[in-house]
Design a protein around this nucleic acid. Structure first.
Lengths: 148, 148
DNA sequence: ATGATTATTGCAATTGGTTGCAGGTGCAAC
DNA sequence: GTTGCACCTGCAACCAATTGCAATAATCAT
């Protein structure tokens, strides 16, 4: 079964409908194979269907988010990235000095997820974390010239 | 040395100035001894100084955030909480079904921080996490009536 | 104290995202 | 194929937060 049918079924089973707009948004997310901002999705969909409204994009993203078909990641500064949640989980380290983005392997957080589940009975959605901090390079730099 | 002098010095050393507005915002954060929204801070400061502008509150929070004197926590839905970062670190588990907030001990994340530092040379700001998921109660509930 | 410098403020305008609503449309049942 | 209903869409109004700007005021050197 192709991803379209699968997604369509998942949507319908939770009482949602498959509309052309949603299909376009889904395609954009699928094709991207990576992170997109809401604005990028809007832009891309507009190429095929210029009448789409921003609100439709956001509403669709919320639906997909609540079904955990896409992840929403806060990369700071109120910027959000959306990503199709079908692939290898991974996470981000974002340097607060130089904004560099580093991938963080999911294994680091698997533990955490299991521990939280054991101790609190709370099943965490550890889909996509963005952790801010200072990267190696910037730490070196700050070390050398202490007074920022 | 009182916290005011200490904060004042920290601000000045990074080229910032201590203004009455900032003092009021700092006091609000200190007194609260917990989480506040920007709106709550604004309201509280307005009691002493009604002319304060929202933008001043946000700008000050950004300054304090960048100095890591306060933490900013995204509790989902674009809601942010601010908290004076002088106390015991702790984190939140937020149930996506019932919105209940559970405290998560910092020890769970200390490990993670150390591991990331070791393996990536990246020093993470693990000040205040908000992890969404499903709490025990809601998991039981969902278990009993599978089709949500 | 005084004045120069420059961060900060309040205002107004703007941006980015959300919401209420009336009309349109997917879906299932017939 | 037709019908009915609930969901979905686009629009416009709305709201929260950010930004540009001129005026103000905190700090420093004198």
């Amino acid at each position: 079964m192709g991803w379209e049918e699968e997604t369509w079924q998942a949507l319908r089973e939770s009482g949602h409908r498959l509309t052309p707009q949603r299909l376009l948004i889904l395609s954009a997310l699928r094709n991207a194979g990576g992170h997109l901002t809401a604005a990028q999705i809007l832009e891309q969909v507009k190429e095929s269907y210029p009448y789409i409204d921003v609100s439709t994009v956001y509403r669709t993203l919320n639906v997909l988010k609540s079904m955990r078909l896409v992840s929403e990641t806060d990369i700071g500064g109120g910027e959000y990235l959306y990503e199709w949640l079908d692939q290898e989980r991974h996470h981000h380290l974002i340097c607060r000095e130089c904004d560099t983005l580093t991938l963080l392997d999911h294994s680091f957080l698997e533990n955490l997820g299991a521990e939280i589940l054991d101790d609190y009975g709370f099943q965490p959605d550890i889909d996509h974390f963005a952790i801010s901090g200072v990267c190696q390079q910037c730490r070196d730099k700050l070390e050398r010239s202490p007074r920022a």
